[in-house]
Nucleic acid binder design. Structure first.
Lengths: 105, 105
DNA sequence: TTGACAGGTGACCAAATAGTCACCTATTGA
DNA sequence: TCAATAGGTGACTATTTGGTCACCTGTCAA
């Protein structure tokens, strides 16, 4: 299977944190991301490359820096695999309710 | 993190196949699921238990049988983590990434 | 122009994981 | 009743995977 690698990529907590960081602010460099994570540069780089190989992150070189961007397309594909149009309606309402309750504390 | 186990559960191809089988037809027993998968009963059982522990599958005993059902809520949670309302709109069309990259230039 | 900086590779080790087996309990129905 | 059936547990092994290090290339600015 091809999407196997996407799920494997998402299985690691460090890689999910990288996606979270890029979700907060797109276009960060390896260095910027690394200082947020308690790990050597090499570890972070390995994780970033995995995310890039599977298409969850896309990058663009700029001089000696490399900017990273989150690509949500594979995430949406996971959603569509197990949630049909009918369930989606229910579930998005459920999510909205949950967020509402959290907002109200 | 708590959702760590959900992503770990989704990382295995056999477990995703189990979810696919339940997505096709809910309420299957271990035996029914096992004949679809080239693996011993024990392996399938282990995978099913993992899926159940993380909430991706819920089950109901019926005599000596145990019926399994797919629960899409954790899948939706993954979606909501990295896709905001605006992106969701865009993503319904394919090729969103291409446009995104062109926009970022 | 040269030293500091950002990024990159291959090898290595420790930890986590998938799959199997021997052995077990509970339910069904001829 | 009792044999077949459905499901369950703990231990074991081979493989995969995460993280680090020594070492390397390309870019920028004083």
């Amino acid at each position: 299977m091809e999407d196997d690698r996407v799920f494997k990529a998402l299985a690691d907590p460090t890689r999910r944190m990288l996606l979270d960081l890029l979700f907060q602010r797109d276009g960060q460099t390896l260095k910027e991301l690394q200082v947020e994570i308690d790990m050597t540069r090499f570890g972070v780089m390995k994780h970033l490359r995995i995310l890039e190989n599977v298409g969850l992150v896309v990058s663009k070189r700029s001089g000696r820096e490399k900017l990273h961007f989150l690509n949500p397309v594979p995430i949406r594909a996971i959603h569509d695999r197990w949630i049909d149009k009918y369930s989606e309606h229910r579930l998005s309402a459920l999510g909205a309710l949950k967020r509402e309750l959290e907002r109200k504390g």
